[in-house]
Amino acid sequence: MNSSFIAFATHYGVPLETITLILMLPVVVMIIAFFRQVIGIKAFGIYTPALIIFAFLGIKSGSGSFWGGIKYGTAIFVSVIIIGTLARIFLRQFRLLYLPRVATVISIVALSTLVILIIGGIFQRTGLASVSIFPILIMITLVEKFVAVQIEKGSKSAIILSAETLIISIVGYSVASWGRLIESLQNYPWVVFIAIGITVLLGKWTGLRLSEYFRFKEIMKNDYLDQKK
């Protein structure tokens, strides 16, 4: 039973798929905000993980299964980052300026992806090739963010942030593929305001993040000793 709002919108030609994805966006960004403010997982900001989650969703609708989204999504994500890193190391000797350098890296990653798709095709692994092209393009451009972080904060931080981005993306993707949630959004679109409300509350949250309990454990130990004394 779809709500009257959804019925109204679909009646005038807005596809249900589009409405669901748009309503899903506030939920997805709420999850990313929650990871940052309460758990303390940073990832590449909010834009990149959100895009990747939708890329995963796109791959899922292409491959037809929930696990297909995770499998191919992660595979593309990891290979883009590996190729991006290699390309960056290779380009170091040419001493290019920042923007042209990133542009070259993206081009190399794009061509390599094409090669991977063809090789997959030769070995009859068509799952990856059947994935629609836009999610793949989104993932390729992600390499810009990765290279930028690598330059600014070093490879170690870039790898940690990528791993965090992947974790958030998988969690966000799982939530966004949850049938119950999709149904609720379709039946009761106002549910989205709950997500927005939680996001606003997260913006006022001044407590310690989960990760900070580990970071500051020495201080807590010290305070504990003080109290005993």
Partner: peptide, 18 residues
């Protein structure tokens, strides 16, 4: 007790917001 012990610590959220 965890929360009580941590009350004197400045976290990222509170640094930015407060």
């Amino acid at each position: 007790t965890w929360i009580r012990k941590s009350s004197g610590i400045l976290g990222m959220n509170s640094r930015n917001l407060s």
